[in-house]
């Protein structure tokens, strides 16, 4: 199991955040940051947590 999926979601979040800070008064950039980038960060974080939990279970820590 790699970290590709959480990296993909977080990477998309950073990309949209980058676009938003460059276009501060663009409604589309603001909408993409608010409704897409922030959920992407959350999904990336949750997927990473799942990966950590799986890892710990494999090592019989959990």
């Amino acid at each position: 199991m790699t970290l590709r999926l959480p990296a993909l979601f977080s990477g998309l979040g950073f990309l949209l955040t980058f676009w938003f800070v460059f276009n501060l008064h663009s409604p589309m950039a603001l909408a993409l940051f608010t409704f897409v980038a922030q959920p992407c960060f959350l999904v990336g974080f949750v997927l990473w947590l799942v990966r950590v939990k799986t890892d710990l279970k494999q090592k019989e820590v959990l």
Binding site: L3, R4, P6, S10, G13
Partner: peptide, 12 residues
Amino acid sequence: SLVGLLICMRLW
């Protein structure tokens, strides 16, 4: 954002 993108690419 740039540092985050670089880290995500590295992890990918």
